[in-house]
Design a protein around this nucleic acid. Structure first.
Lengths: 322, 322
DNA sequence: CACGGGCGTGCTCAGATGAGCGGCGCCCTG
DNA sequence: CAGGGCGCCGCTCATCTGAGCACGCCCGTG
């Protein structure tokens, strides 16, 4: 090379050459060696041109997908929180009911995809889980286990109590369900209930559950069915103990450490240890009020996967990053 | 692997996994081997995931640049016509004067970039070349050669006749210019003029020109200064001979083959052979009426590089493709 | 129940690629 | 004018990557 350089280093010809090379490489899929031959450059030059093109923004790479699922955000949330799976919809979040419906549909799709005939499915009591059951159209043949007692709020139609049976019907597998409340007034009653044949039958299966679906509640009014069903004094006491999240009746503090209390003894349902032992717990969550609760549940290893909406997902990433 | 597959092949989890992998690969620049290890996949699986991601449109790669130059279109036109260089601006084409100004500026930038101290620059007579000269702010120190006589139209201010001197001043190199018309009434006068010291001095340098800038005219009213300066009979005769393009006084047919005629003898300027011998002739062209003229000039090997606007560039690609 | 097509998977091996290095010419400064 | 700094270039070598192939499983069919 004669090595006498002319004008500006980043003139239009350089720009167009770079664009040509980028086009050949990214759009036509040619190798750098081929491009080097075609343009009479060294392959190193081509590589540097392409590096420049990317760093200068001449080449833009976007990851996206037409549809309700924001795949890029899902991937980011998954990586940020170290989740097993993650689905984020970009549903507008101004209408809780439609939000729940969309998330239920997304969770149903996820479950259909994930569940194999080798799985054992556990279901928690939550409106979002019920929404998922409604949307579920197909599922591998697996046993379905009820993980907690029911908890209905007067005046609120929390939809069918038949969630476990509905899902089991779609799956074509056996259903392990029972009729009992999530919490009872005293430990003795709880123990008695746990000995009930149906309850005991379901509970004996909890250890074999490989995938579970649950909601996540925050310890605040309207943010947890359990909170709303608890007495004023107990709410306060549990709050004092640092309760931040409620997952299927399991209470944990901000670090995700289970908070033992009087209430723990009175619960009919899966324990913190059992839940942590489940290989994959999928939580369906919505509402930005639950940021800290979700983080606690994930950090505590209780929740492994998330189905949520973009506003909450972004808030989670922001909070987790800080 | 246990090899019992669950739900749908393209569920949300698959989508999000693909997005994660694509993000790591394209955005974070990790290698496929690293990604394979991170996600516990085989590197083949990663490669196939990435292939799917691109073919399904999950990953979109765009080449573009904020500015007046449409680099992507420039690259495409360059490849389609096999040009040495190409600059396409996306200036709106509804105002010829502003168009000429923009193209002049783009051409000036291109020239600044391309010209090295080893070059010898030739300039043709054209309004667009004049516009380039006006915009030129910097240039390597090179000799500047006038390639043709001048051709002014009455009532049209074709700007300075001093183009060659102006450019030479910016370059800081010697100027080889002369005052003579582009065409004269008879061959004898032309020969006499060519013997003029200044003319001969400039012409003797034509063989050493390494880069030239010119316009391209179509053989139609208002599309070529030479056409407009020619008699009715001659226009018709030349049209009959198939003249399609005029480049710096050189006339060629639709294939780019030079058309010899009576007029050829009466021209004061570079010949077709000489022009083809110039390593790079850069043409500044605008107006979709000149599609066929540009194609002829390029196919004939007279023009090697183009500075034009998007409308004409697209028309050229369309026409060349068909 | 045996067979064969289709699909997804991972292997081999040659060719492509990236990281880091030394060389060279330009430009700036003393 | 000499020396040093800097940016650009292309090389080497270890690693990465793609094309094609073979295997095993699933499923539908005779």
């Amino acid at each position: 090379m004669v090595a006498v350089r002319g004008g500006s280093a980043h003139g239009p010809a350089h720009l167009v050459l770079t664009a040509s090379v980028a086009r050949r490489y990214y759009l036509d899929g040619r190798s750098k060696v081929e491009i080097a031959e075609e343009f009479a450059l060294s392959r190193f030059k081509v590589a540097r041109l392409l590096d420049d093109a990317r760093s200068s923004g001449l080449v833009r790479i976007e990851i996206g997908h037409p549809g309700v699922i924001d795949v890029e955000l899902s991937a980011r949330l998954m990586e940020t929180l170290g989740l097993q799976h993650c689905v984020v919809t970009d549903t507008p979040d101004d209408h809780p009911a439609s939000l729940r419906e969309h998330l239920g549909a997304a969770a149903a799709e996820l479950l259909t995809e994930l569940v194999t005939p080798d799985d054992v499915l556990g279901l928690s009591w939550a409106r979002s889980v019920s929404a998922m059951a409604t949307a579920l159209q197909r599922l591998a043949t697996v046993p379905v286990i009820q993980l907690t007692g029911a908890l209905t709020r007067p005046g609120v139609d929390d939809s069918s109590i038949e969630v476990v049976r509905d899902v089991a019907r779609v799956a074509g597998g056996p259903a392990y369900f029972f009729y009992a409340p999530m919490a009872v007034p005293d430990a003795a009653t709880a123990q008695a209930l746990r000995r009930q044949p149906e309850v005991a039958r379901a509970f004996s299966r909890i250890g074999s559950v490989t995938r579970a679906v649950a909601g996540v509640g925050a310890w605040a009014p309207e943010q947890s069915t359990l909170y709303d069903a608890t007495s004023e004094a107990e709410r306060h006491e549990l709050g004092r103990l640092g309760v931040t999240a409620e997952i299927s009746g399991v209470l944990v503090d901000a670090d995700g450490t289970p908070v033992a209390s009087d209430l723990t003894e009175r619960m009919i349902g899966i324990t913190a240890e059992q839940m942590r032992a489940v290989p994959e717990v999928i939580a369906i969550v919505y509402g930005t009020a639950k940021v800290k609760a979700v983080l606690a549940a994930v950090r505590g290893g209780l929740v492994d996967s998330l189905v949520t909406h973009s506003t909450l997902a972004e808030a989670l990433i922001r909070e987790a990053g800080s």
